[in-house]
Each structure stands twice: as structure tokens, then as C-alpha cells.
């Protein structure tokens, strides 16, 4: 999942970004609305984490302009403003959730997962596909009840494919969801990650649910 984190406090921004990266997310950082707009113009994000009190243009103004330009990327407001009026104003302008500082990283991760799940039309955080049971909230995967150990990056790749079942995702699209702008993956990084994921999820004669579409990309599908 690729996340844009807009926060003026450098320490908080770096720490949250670091934690999310450790959870397998790709995080781009912006210190103000100007930087956030630049990132938004270059990439598409699964979720935007937005502080309200930013130097210069406020976070609310950025949110308003996003929604005006029909960009429905889920937005979670992270702010110190805690009154009911502040929350209502943020949600009324199109925010999907609101988290008051200081917050727990665990809660932030759960809320990110929840807003993304809501946007993709899934009611539960657990998705069953073939013999796999993927729990996006707990970030674990079971095959016939047996837990499979995945790295954060591998889980993110699985999440990216599983959230769009039956849809072919190009290497560039997958890369965009896995790597932040500051990371420069090798040209075969996605292929290598797919190979590794297939080996862990579908060992031996187990039929693979991740299929290659030559020249197009990869798709996760139960029945071809």
C-alpha cells in the first residue's frame, strides 16, 4: 500500500513513516501542502495521512481541493485539533477518518486498513481466496488454517494483488504500491518478490493463485 504522509513536524513525520515502512507500507513524506501537491501529481496513493495545521496553506484547504478535483483517495486526518466542531469540519470536507494526536501506531495502521477496506467495498478485514485466508488487519495469512510467515514487503505485495482480485496489475502499478519515491528498486524487484511469494504461499503441487499475464503484469484469481 502506498501512503502519502503530510505532516510539518519532521520528527513525527519520520517516525510515523518509519513505523509504516516497517509494517510493509510504502510511504512518501510531505512537510506542507505544496510538497503534498507535488507528490499527488506524480503518484496515486491508497491513502493520505493529513495534518491540519500546516505552515502556509492548511490541511483542510488541501483536502477541499482534492475533493473538488474529484480525487477520492481515502484521507485520514491526523491532528491536534480535538473538538467536535474540528472533527465535523474535517469529515464534512471529505475526510474518511480522524485521528487525534497523540495516537498509537497500531491504531493508525488499523484505521488505514479500515478506510482502504471500506473503499474497496469489503466489509471484513479477512479475505478468503482459494485455500488462503488473508487477515489485512492482523497482517497475517493462513493456508488451510496454517499460518504462513511473510515479510512486510511480501505481505504488501499479496495485499496489493488480493485487494484487486481478477484485475491485472502492471509491474509499474505494483512498484508504485510497494516502494516510496525515495526507494529505487531494481528492475526485476517485482518479479523476484512475486517468485518468492508464490514459493511461500503455494509450495509443491499447490496450484498458484497468482498468475502471470505476459507483457501485461500479474493477476490474483481463484479460477482461470
Amino acid at each position: 500500500m502506498r501512503i502519502l504522509l503530510v505532516e510539518d513536524s519532521q520528527r513525527l513525520r519520520n517516525t510515523v513513516a518509519r513505523a509504516l515502512v516497517r509494517l510493509g507500507q510504502a510511504v512518501d513524506e510531505a512537510a506542507d501542502v505544496r510538497e503534498a501537491r507535488q507528490c499527488r501529481d506524480l503518484y496515486s496513493y491508497d491513502v493520505i495521512l493529513l495534518d491540519l495545521m500546516l505552515p502556509g496553506e492548511s490541511g483542510l484547504s488541501f483536502l477541499e481541493s482534492l475533493r473538488r478535483s474529484r480525487d477520492d483517495t481515502p484521507v485520514i486526518i491526523l491532528t491536534a485539533l480535538h473538538t467536535v466542531g474540528d472533527r465535523v469540519r474535517g469529515l464534512a470536507l471529505g475526510a474518511d477518518d480522524y485521528l487525534v494526536k497523540p495516537f498509537a501506531i497500531e491504531e493508525l495502521a488499523a484505521r488505514i486498513e479500515a478506510v482502504v477496506r471500506r473503499r474497496s467495498g469489503q466489509a471484513h478485514s479477512v479475505l478468503r481466496i482459494g485455500a488462503l485466508e488473508i487477515d489485512f488487519s492482523a497482517r497475517r495469512v493462513l493456508r488451510r488454517g496454517e499460518e504462513i510467515s511473510l515479510t512486510a514487503r511480501e505481505f504488501s505485495l499479496l495485499e496489493c494483488l488480493a485487494r484487486h482480485p481478477g484485475r491485472v496489475l502492471s509491474r509499474e502499478q505494483i512498484e508504485e504500491h510497494l516502494y516510496a519515491e525515495t526507494q529505487s528498486p531494481l528492475s526485476n524487484a517485482v518479479d523476484a518478490a512475486i517468485y518468492s511469494l508464490r514459493r511461500k504461499l503455494f509450495p509443491g503441487d499447490e496450484p498458484s493463485l497468482i498468475h502471470t499475464r505476459r507483457g501485461l503484469g500479474y493477476v490474483m484469481q481463484e479460477n482461470l
Binding site: 513525527l12 517516525t15 513505523a19 491536534a80 487525534v100 494526536k101 497523540p102 495516537f103 498509537a104
Partner: peptide, 14 residues
């Protein structure tokens, strides 16, 4: 007040 608190909490949790 909340921003440095959030920083401290996030860093401790990390």
C-alpha cells in the same frame, strides 16, 4: 502540546 507528545509516543512505540 500534542505534537511533541505524539512524537514521543510514536518514537517509543517504534
Amino acid at each position: 502540546l500534542r505534537t511533541p507528545l505524539a512524537e514521543i509516543r510514536a518514537m517509543v512505540e517504534l
